[in-house]
């Protein structure tokens, strides 16, 4: 399986390439002042407003820096009956990796989005579970 590698402060998080719609470069986002902290803003994605999550903010409690390699991964977030387009902003998205072995299963209460880990080329790659990237409360904050 091909995983898109999202690096946040040297840590690698893998996202299944099949769940990725597109990777876009970093652009200016429309700020939502009343929104939750982890929401970086709204992206004008080809004429459609897409909420963008700041993964660094969510994981490291620090906003992403504005760099060339900072990219927004457009995904289809599954929500009960339908999928919703969501942007995931990560500090460094420059490579994809093909993972052949199984992820060792992992279940963390504080980080439910981590679906396991695997060692790839000497580095640990965490598997991001897209469905659990937002806690129900967070999902409620974003999508209502």
């Amino acid at each position: 399986m091909l995983y898109l590698v999202l690096e946040i402060d040297g840590e690698c998080y893998g996202l299944n390439a099949l769940s990725v719609t597109e990777v876009t470069p970093l652009v200016e986002l429309e700020q939502i002042h009343e929104g939750p902290e982890f929401l970086a803003g709204l992206l004008n994605y080809r004429g459609r407003p897409v909420p963008v999550l700041d993964l660094r903010r969510m994981i490291k409690k620090k906003p992403c820096e504005k760099r060339y390699c900072t990219r927004i991964v457009i995904v289809e977030y599954p929500r009960t009956t339908k999928t919703l387009t969501l942007g995931l902003m990560a500090q460094k998205v420059v490579r994809s990796v093909r993972v052949t072995q199984e992820f060792s299963p992992m279940e963390l209460r504080n980080a439910p989005y981590l679906g396991g880990a695997v060692v790839e080329r000497g580095r640990i790659l965490h598997c991001l579970t897209l469905e659990k990237i937002l806690s129900p409360q967070q999902a409620l904050e974003v999508f209502g």
């Binding site: 970093l26 820096e65 504005k66 760099r67 060339y68 390699c69 900072t70 460094k92 420059v94 490579r95």
Partner: peptide, 8 residues
């Protein structure tokens, strides 16, 4: 790839 770390 480190080059992509440049500030935009």
């Amino acid at each position: 790839r480190e080059q992509y770390n440049r500030e935009i």
